[in-house]
Design a protein around this nucleic acid. Structure first.
Length: 199
DNA sequence: GGAGCGATGTCCT
DNA sequence: GGACATCGCTCCG
């Protein structure tokens, strides 16, 4: 039996939320269709104490969601062409979030292939194996998804617990950042076939 | 399978 | 004006 993760799930420290998000299922509703994927790779961003976090310099219009209540989607635009998806953590007023880096596509693969602009013969591993890729595969953009409450029953973006949990979790430094590059705040479901090269 | 690199818009100093 | 929580292509082995 699967259920939507409640707000209390997200109210904790980003490191705890990040680890526990592994194995949970993201559901995106696009044009009446449900697309789902299991979270296999995440990174924690720690708010004011973390030089690599968008919230490090304080609250701005862009990062306001991360300062708000837990359980909301923070979607930002990066490198002129990609979106990245995070979920806000910590109590209202305390910044913090978890970046979703990869999901294992479960449902709606044909639509994901189309949204990604790939050939129908494409390897499913290429569909959502990166933060920009998974947003494209799930139809997530800043204008449509930033600030959405993912704990709401009617939300077009939700996160479910379907009872699955990863056998073991791998922790490594985060990637693609320039500051605080040593902190082991990237977490992966170690046994999953959809994570990329380990290190 | 990995290093190098260009594309490209938005945010913040 | 520079940095940027990326991706996919090329070229090389």
């Amino acid at each position: 039996m699967s259920h939507i993760l409640p707000r209390s799930f997200y109210i904790r420290h980003p490191t705890v939320v990040a680890r526990e998000l592994l194995g949970k299922v993201i559901a995106s509703h696009i044009d009446g269709e449900e697309l789902t994927g299991r979270i296999v790779e995440v990174e924690a961003y720690l708010g004011l104490a973390d030089p690599a976090a968008h919230t490090f310099g304080g609250k701005t219009e862009r990062n306001a969601v991360l300062f708000g209540p837990p359980g909301f989607a923070y979607v930002y635009f990066i490198y002129g062409m990609h979106y990245c998806l995070n979920f806000s953590c910590e109590p209202d007023g305390v910044p913090g979030g978890v970046l979703i880096r990869a999901v294992e596509p479960l449902k709606g693969l044909d639509t994901m292939v189309r949204l990604r602009g790939l050939a129908s013969s494409a390897n499913p591993r290429l569909l959502a194996s990166g933060p920009g890729k998974l947003c494209q595969a799930l139809g997530i953009t800043r204008s449509t998804h930033n600030g959405l409450d993912v704990t709401r029953k009617a939300s077009p973006l939700q996160v479910f617990d379907d009872g699955y949990s990863p056998v073991s979790i791998l922790a490594t430094p985060r990637i693609g950042i320039r500051k605080a590059v040593e902190e082991p705040l990237r977490f992966m479901a170690a046994e999953n076939e959809f994570i990329r090269t380990k290190r």
